[in-house]
């Protein structure tokens, strides 16, 4: 009888571990694979891409950790020396200006998306998608309205940002992004809202069948620029 008890306990624990593993595996597979591939090569390629993406994400996390450490070190160094306090403030101010720190404040959130009309039903399907120039134009208008920080799909717009067309996607800062687009901007919301004026660009886009919504928000968070700004040729004149 005691023997049977032990047997059932051991078998129960093993079954627990087994079903736990199966559930975790199922969740993992569900999370990473959007659609099953047709053949072996495709699946292999997809697995490869996923592995690289994971490596990329891990590296990004490491960079973030190192950044935190740097900040901590700066803080520690300046805490003991009052003279360095000024320098630290200057660094922070500079980082904010060039876009290498996360910023938050009041502003607007614009949502753009491709039209839902089927592309085979119209003469020119290119009218149904959001183009790089649309985003370029909106960013330009936002800057004109006094936006202090702008991001497109979590990509910060900095002085070296290029927005280009890449077929059915758009590249911003070298990162591929696709519809729907979320443009966030920090600035005086009353000014930025004027982008949605009658006869404005957003209304024109809506008339063309695209989705273009503008929302005021008191709490817009814009991520920092994760790349490197490196000036090789421009030298300052003393």
């Amino acid at each position: 009888m005691v023997n049977k008890k032990i047997i059932s306990i051991v078998l129960g624990i093993m079954c627990l571990a087994l079903t736990m593993g199966i559930c975790i595996q199922m969740k993992t597979v569900k999370k990473y694979s959007t659609a099953e591939g047709q053949n072996y090569d495709q699946n292999n390629l997809r697995a490869e891409v996923l592995k690289y993406r994971e490596k990329y994400e891990n590296t990004l996390k490491e960079i973030e950790k190192i950044d935190d450490e740097l900040e901590k070190n700066i803080e520690e160094a300046t805490n003991q020396n009052a003279d360095l306090e000024d320098a630290r403030n200057q660094i922070q101010q500079g980082n904010k200006l060039i876009g290498t720190t996360e910023v938050t404040g009041p502003g607007v959130i614009i949502k753009l998306a491709d039209s839902e009309i089927e592309s085979s039903k119209v003469l020119d399907p290119s009218l149904l998608v959001v183009h790089d120039l649309d985003i370029f134009y909106i960013i330009n208008e936002l800057k004109n309205a006094g936006a202090e920080a702008i991001s497109v799909n979590e990509q910060r717009i900095v002085s070296t940002t290029a927005i280009e067309c890449g077929g059915n996607i758009i590249t911003v800062n070298g990162e591929k992004i696709g519809s729907p687009f979320t443009i966030k901007a920090i600035g005086l919301p009353e000014n930025l809202v004027n982008l949605d004026r009658t006869g404005g660009y957003l209304e024109k886009m809506r008339e063309a069948g695209l989705t273009a919504d503008l929302k005021k928000s008191n709490n817009v968070t814009i991520p920092k620029y994760s790349g490197i700004i490196n000036y090789k040729y421009a030298k300052s004149i003393n």
Binding site: K4, I7, S8, I9, L11, G12, I13, M14, C15, L16, A17, L18, T19, M20, G21, I22, C23, I24, Q25, K27, T28, V29, K31, Y32, A47, L50, K51, E54
Partner: peptide, 27 residues
Amino acid sequence: VVFAIIIGCLLGAIIGMNAPTISYTYS
């Protein structure tokens, strides 16, 4: 024994549903 297996499976499923996913490399 059957009871132990069923209880083990049920508990494992519940824990597995709430556990975090592992990275794709190790799946």
